[in-house]
Every structure is written in structure tokens, then in C-alpha cells.
Computed example of a mutant assay.
Amino acid sequence: MQRDRDQCILTLTIDEALHINDRSGSFIFGKSGLGDYSPGVFMGRTTAQGGSVGFGLHAGRDSDYIRVSKDTGLEIRNAKFSISTGTASQQSITSSASVPLAAGSKSLTLQLLGGGKGGSASQHVTPAGNGGDTIVLLRDGSTNIATFTAGGATSHVSGQYGQVSADNPYGNGGHGSSGASGGSDEAGYWNIAAGKGGSAGEIKTFENIDVSGLSNPILQITVGHGGAGATTTSSSRRGTSGGQGRVIYSSEGHATLPAGVISQAPAVSGSMSVNQGDNQNFNRFPDLGPGMWAVQGSFWKIVDGHSIHPDVRTFAARTRPGVTYNGTGNHSVAYYFWPIK
């Protein structure tokens, strides 16, 4: 266990089961309780509406969350789903390299972590070094397609111990040098303050990067170095180096398609006019977002760039669909819409 005395922060390394008191204990991050819809996490003992003891979990924010309680059961609000028939291949890269993606790769996910800042010393000869940036160039052969970067750490925390990254031990900040004191009434007292710990490197995630159109996809990876610790004239009072960065990537051989949950009842219904000759400038339905549509009448539909036969009158669409008509006269088209979230 490490303690930052100035900020009263504890860093715990847990290698066994963590038991929390089941009568009143809880785990809280950014929330005050089960009914708090601020961004964060709450997990712990609650009191149900009838006064009985329950257990609650609430992770997320007001617009999208997972919530479990004795009164409402399991509730998932506005979750995002995706479908893929492929299996992701995940790799960890800890040194700079050129990495070709597997043949047939369609989508790519990257997690980048910059290097941690070195720990300082109060009477340094050489100051602490900054962490290096971690950079990934996505290339098609020798042609650059996109650049992704996670910055190396450049600052110190207020206490002696370095900041722990989300990918511990990679990207951790180095520890500051130890302090020292001594002397006597006759010779005078002296004191050397402890150095400050380095901050952790930046971590970034880039998801569902489309690489399906690349004939020779390659990742040119530069892993950020950990910043060197500050040096002093004393070998025992030096800062330690920050942790190096890392890249974790995964690729899939099939495109990832968005999916969702459909409502049990239509949210919108209405009608619109379709006129003769509208096959040249097709009429669009209202812009309601992703969802399922039921349309009355035999008309060609344009859905996400596809032409849908008149006999098909129920369909799902990601974008705003429309209808075309090459007959005579004017007609009213009724529609019903079920949102998909």
C-alpha cells in the first residue's frame, strides 16, 4: 500500500477477494448513492421502498446507465450494441515496431498509453524527464491513413509517490526522491524535502476503425518511453523513472455492425404525400434516427442506400429512409416508427 500524505490518496494492490461489510458498506465513485444520476458508480447496501434491506448497483449517468435495485430489478438505459461474426485478435505492444494486420481485417480497436513522468528531487542535478508520446500511424502500405496519439506525462503530483495509471504498471509516474534531515544544536539543523512523484501517461481508446478498404494495412507504432528520474549528488536521494507506455490493439475479420433494442410500441405514426414522378426526387420520411418502420402502400423504398421492393413494407433503417413513386396521381403514405437504441 502507498499513501500520498498531501492528498490523502491510498493506492492498494489487491491479490485476494475484497470483502465489504454487507450491512452498511458500499463502493462509491462520483455518486452519493443509488438514486444519484451523476456520472460515476455506486455499489452497496440500500433500503427498499418497503423498508427491507436490499442491494444496489448504479453505473453510468442520467442518459445511459446500468441500474439494479430490489424495487426495480435490472434496468439498462440506452445501451449501445454491436454485432460481429468474427473473432477479435488482441495483441500487446511494448516496444516500437511495424505491425502488419492480419489479412482480411475489417475493423480495428486501439488503446494507447503514453509514458509516465519521472520522479523529481528537491536538490536535483538533472531534472526529471517527461514521458514520451505513444503514436500509432495507420498505413496502407507506405501511405499514411490516420495518426493516433496518447501524450506522455509532463507534470508532477503533489506527493512523493508517482501516479498509478489505468494500465498499471505501464505508464506509471516515477516516485520522488526521499527526504533527509539531521544536525544538532551546535552545528544547526538541516532538512532536505522529498521530491514529487510524476503523473501517469495519457490513455486513449479508439474503437471500430474501418480498415476494410485497405489492401495492406500496417500499424507503425512508437511506444512512449518513461521519463528519467531526477538525479542528485547523492545516489540514495534520486527520483525513479516513469513507466513506459503501451499499445493494445485488436482487429476483426468481419465488419462490426451497430445493433440495438427495439421499443415494444411505436413511438411515432403519421402520413405524408407522395406525388406522381417522385422517383426522381424521392420523398423522405421524418428524421427520427435508427429504428424499424412499417409503411402502408406499394412503393419502392430507399433505405441506407439500398432499394427495397414494394412488397416489403416493414424494414429497419439506420438513416432517414424515403419512398419513390412512378405511378399516376397523388397518394398518402401512412407510416409507423419503433425506435432502436
Score class of each variant (00 low, 15 high):
3 R>M: 01
8 C>I: 02
11 T>R: 08
12 L>C: 13
15 D>V: 13
16 E>F: 08
17 A>S: 15
18 L>I: 10
18 L>G: 07
25 G>S: 13
28 I>E: 13
30 G>M: 06
31 K>F: 05
32 S>P: 03
32 S>A: 15
34 L>I: 15
41 V>H: 09
44 G>P: 06
45 R>P: 06
45 R>M: 13
46 T>D: 03
47 T>N: 04
53 V>A: 15
53 V>H: 09
55 F>N: 11
56 G>R: 00
62 D>C: 02
65 Y>T: 00
65 Y>Q: 02
67 R>I: 00
70 K>D: 14
72 T>P: 04
73 G>T: 00
78 N>V: 03
80 K>P: 00
81 F>I: 11
82 S>A: 09
83 I>R: 11
87 T>F: 12
88 A>S: 11
88 A>W: 14
89 S>I: 14
90 Q>D: 05
91 Q>F: 14
93 I>E: 13
93 I>V: 15
94 T>G: 10
97 A>R: 15
97 A>C: 12
101 L>G: 06
102 A>F: 04
108 L>P: 01
109 T>Y: 03
109 T>W: 02
112 L>F: 10
119 G>W: 00
123 Q>V: 11
130 N>G: 05
133 D>C: 06
134 T>Q: 03
138 L>D: 04
140 D>E: 12
140 D>F: 09
142 S>M: 08
143 T>S: 14
144 N>A: 12
148 F>D: 07
149 T>L: 12
151 G>E: 03
153 A>V: 00
153 A>N: 00
155 S>Q: 13
156 H>I: 07
157 V>D: 06
159 G>P: 00
160 Q>P: 03
162 G>H: 04
163 Q>G: 04
171 G>M: 03
171 G>E: 02
172 N>D: 13
173 G>V: 02
176 G>W: 08
176 G>E: 07
177 S>H: 08
181 S>H: 05
184 S>Q: 10
186 E>C: 04
192 I>E: 09
193 A>M: 11
194 A>C: 09
194 A>M: 11
200 A>Q: 07
203 I>L: 05
204 K>V: 06
204 K>F: 02
208 N>P: 05
209 I>Y: 07
215 S>I: 12
216 N>E: 12
219 L>H: 09
220 Q>Y: 07
225 H>T: 08
226 G>Y: 04
228 A>Q: 08
229 G>N: 06
231 T>W: 04
235 S>K: 12
237 R>G: 05
239 G>L: 05
242 G>N: 08
245 G>H: 09
246 R>S: 07
252 E>K: 07
253 G>Y: 10
255 A>N: 08
255 A>C: 02
256 T>E: 14
260 G>V: 02
266 P>E: 13
270 G>S: 06
274 V>L: 15
278 D>H: 03
278 D>G: 05
279 N>T: 09
283 N>T: 15
286 P>G: 09
286 P>V: 11
290 P>T: 11
291 G>S: 13
295 V>K: 00
296 Q>I: 08
298 S>H: 11
300 W>M: 12
301 K>W: 08
302 I>A: 07
303 V>W: 07
307 S>E: 10
309 H>N: 14
311 D>C: 02
313 R>M: 13
314 T>D: 01
318 R>I: 13
318 R>F: 11
320 R>L: 08
323 V>W: 07
326 N>T: 10
335 Y>T: 04
337 F>S: 00
340 I>T: 14
341 K>F: 02
